[in-house]
Design a protein around this nucleic acid. Structure first.
Lengths: 241, 241
DNA sequence: CGCCTTCTAAGTGAATACACTTATTAAATG
DNA sequence: CATTTAATAAGTGTATTCACTTAGAAGGCG
């Protein structure tokens, strides 16, 4: 009942997750990795981190274990944790894997059907996207807005698949550095338009209870995102991160 | 500097994994879960486990974290870890997910090509399977032998896919209780024959560098395993575990 | 001059002690 | 008699300590 006041100024961003410190620490370390504050291949020093975060090594270790489970870190006995490297090949592959998994999710959703509020959320995401894309170009913040819409669509469809393992694996795909939604900023208007069209068709297939078609459309959809990313990396050789 | 002598006699079974105790403990707990020694939904008591395994809570917690990462355990703050439940639906779904993932692996392998020794191992697994299936029925231990052959085939193809994330996800699918290879015992001779035929065709597609065909064949192959399992569960209502 | 050995520092692995949260039981009150 | 509340026990969360392993540096030896 002494040191319950939040530490120095680290939690500033995430204000700490509910429950225990390990989870909060986990989020912070993940952020540090995805931000690039700690670079790939780097070895993680537990005591250093615990000092930085003003906690003991225990929650730090717990967080590291969990992040290793997510695939962000490697572990070697007596050598601790290192930040896993994600070469471009692996990132592109991750999109392919995600495409396959989200395809299965769409199929499951089409087989199982949407609940009323799931349907409502998706329909809302579709009209919101339509409205956003009405004008032929983006204003400031429009891309961020669409990112949120996009997230709603995919997350809701995923929850309609009603399979936890699937959800977790897709979540892992999202956490691959650079494939995370935060980094997908450099998209043209026509790219987004095309993707939003995909959403419409996927929704139709799901509502029509056409599992196979829903799966194929979703696979193609995510593969398209991969293609866009590759283009944005090669055209202007300006890596988003 | 007193109690450095190794503990009583715990490592007896698994002789402990190289490196640290956490990994050894992890294996033991996983075994306990997959064996059913601790039942699904059950809450795991850390102190109890540490007493049973004659280690402190620290490596136990580390192992639990890691197993949660593998998806075998659930975690809730201040409530610790519970054994995740795998209803039949989830197990069947896991096969579907694995089919999709191994399909991608086969595609990657066909795109990237097999290394010389990978090719050798697979060819060997094919001839070994042919020989085993020549006679029209199984002797004792033949099924176990084929399980090993089957494992070689899939593992080698997976390594040829050259993607770590994919490998880990498939590994997770294998660790789902009852979908683990250890439990697939109740197969007819014709089932195995069919599956082995699949192997031949998949190998051909991979060698012919036909990614799409390889993917489709592998998906169908694993889905077939799922179907066999379902049949073996429903026909005789004798659950393998 | 180069290589091997040894010593030392740094960092991880494990154990223990303590703090805090949750659940259960009993008691008291309506 | 039921319901709520307080006390207590059990169990998880965190910190700290010590042991052990590994890596780096310095010195001796070939």
């Amino acid at each position: 009942m002494d040191d319950q006041d939040p530490p120095t100024g680290i939690d500033s961003v995430a204000v700490a997750r509910a429950g225990n410190r390990s989870l909060s620490v986990m989020d912070q370390i993940r952020e540090a990795i995805l931000d690039g504050s700690v670079s790939a291949g780097e070895r993680i020093n537990e005591v250093k981190f615990s000092r930085t975060l003003t906690v003991s090594r225990t929650p730090v270790r717990a967080a590291l274990q969990a992040l290793a489970g997510e695939g962000l870190l490697d572990y070697a006995p007596n050598r601790g944790f290192t930040v896993r490297e994600f070469p471009l090949d692996a990132i592109v592959d991750a999109y392919e894997i995600r495409a396959s998994l989200e395809g299965v999710a769409a199929r499951f959703a089409a087989e199982r059907g949407l609940g009323p509020e799931e349907r409502a959320i998706i329909e809302q995401s579709l009209v919101a996207g339509d409205k956003l894309l009405e004008r032929g170009s983006f204003g400031p913040g429009d891309l961020a807005a669409y990112r949120s819409i996009n997230g709603d669509f995919h997350e809701t469809l995923l929850s309609a698949a009603r399979n936890r393992m699937l959800a977790e694996m897709i979540r892992i795909c999202h956490h691959v550095p650079m494939s995370s939604s935060r980094n997908i900023v450099a998209f043209e208007h026509r790219d987004v338009r095309r993707r939003h069209d995909d959403h419409h068709r996927i929704f139709e297939a799901v509502m029509a209870r056409e599992p196979h078609r829903a799966e194929m459309l979703m696979r193609e959809h995510v593969s398209g995102v991969k293609a866009s990313l590759i283009r944005s990396l090669t055209d202007r050789s300006e890596p988003p991160v």
